[in-house]
Each structure stands twice: as C-alpha cells, then as structure tokens.
Computed example of a mutant assay.
Amino acid sequence: MTISEEALRALERQRTVEITTVGRRSAQPRRIETWRYLAAGRFWLTGSPGTRDWYANVVAHPDFILHLKDRDLAVRGRPVTDPDERARVFGEIVPALDWAGDLESWIAGSPLVEIEL
C-alpha cells in the first residue's frame, strides 16, 4: 500500500486519529479514537499497558481504516511481538510521554502495531 506525499504529511501532523477495525468476533466495523506515534521513522499505534479490543481486532484482521481530519487511508497493521523490536520502538515513544510511567511495563504489556502505509 502506498499513499500520496500529501497524505503522508497529513499523517505526520495529526497525532490524534480514529481507526476503524473489523471486530474479531462480530466481523462488524469498530471505530475508536487513539494516538499515533512516530518512532524509527515509521508510524505506530499503541496504548498504556493493558488489553485493547482494537489490538485484538488488528491481530485478527490486519487491514483497517485510518481516519485523518480530511481523508481516510486504507492501511495494514503489523502487530509487533518481538521483544527487541518492542524495546527499540518503546524506547523512543515512552520517554517523550511525561505521564507514561516506566518503560519496562510498556514493553511487557502494551499493544504495539506498526501502521503499514
């Protein structure tokens, strides 16, 4: 999947996004607001430690819609489970969040999905 340079710039500017995933059990669309992060030159979705329905939906159905203010992008999610990759990515994301708590809890218990454009 590729997106235009204009869409890429829009994604770089907009941290709060909405995503529509396909429910893993219901197969129905599920739309939520979340934050996207930039680390290692790529875009990511994550959240504080804990389980998330959106993450389970992306694991089951990787294709989803990323909603920006002025456009919708068809993207694919790549769940990240490799401990070394998780440590690298969270090592960039978590220190910038003054509310995040400790890095180790994020590595151990937070969902992490790369947004493949």
Rank of each mutant, 00 (worst) to 15 (best):
L8I: 01
R52G: 08
N57A: 11
L68W: 01
G47A: 15
I107G: 04
P95E: 13
L66E: 02
V58Q: 02
E116C: 02
S110E: 12
D53W: 09
L45I: 02
A56F: 13
R86I: 07
T81E: 15
A7L: 05
D102Y: 03
S4E: 12
G47V: 09
P79H: 10
R9S: 11
I32G: 08
T46G: 09
D84A: 08
D72T: 07
E5D: 13
I3T: 06
T20W: 01
E85L: 08
G91R: 10
P49S: 14
D72N: 07
T34N: 04
F43I: 05
E6P: 00
E5R: 07
I19N: 05
D70W: 02
E33V: 13
A96F: 07
R52V: 14
A27N: 10
Y37T: 03
V59W: 09
V58P: 04
E5N: 09
W44F: 11
W99H: 14
V113N: 06
A87C: 13
R71W: 00
R15W: 07
N57Q: 10
R31V: 02
T16Q: 10
R86T: 14
P49T: 04
N57I: 01
P62E: 15
R78P: 15
D63E: 12
S4N: 07
R31Q: 01
S48W: 15
D63H: 06
E85V: 00
E92Y: 03
E92A: 04
A27D: 12
R36N: 12
L45Y: 12
R36E: 05
H67D: 01
L45P: 05
D70S: 03
A27E: 03
S48T: 06
F90R: 14
R76Y: 10
I107E: 02
S48P: 09
S4Q: 14
S110P: 02
D63T: 13
T34V: 14
E104N: 05
T81N: 15
G91H: 11
P79L: 02
R9G: 06
L8H: 09
E6C: 00
V59P: 00
Y37Q: 06
S26Q: 02
V59M: 10
S105F: 05
I32K: 00
L66Q: 00
Q28L: 03
R30A: 02
E18P: 15
I93L: 13
R36Q: 13
D82V: 00
G50A: 04
W99E: 14
R13H: 10
R76M: 14
W44M: 08
V89H: 01
E104P: 02
Q14H: 11
V22T: 07
V59H: 02
R42M: 14
V113Y: 08
I3E: 11
A39K: 11
A10T: 07
A74L: 08
R76T: 15
T46F: 09
E104C: 07
Q14P: 03
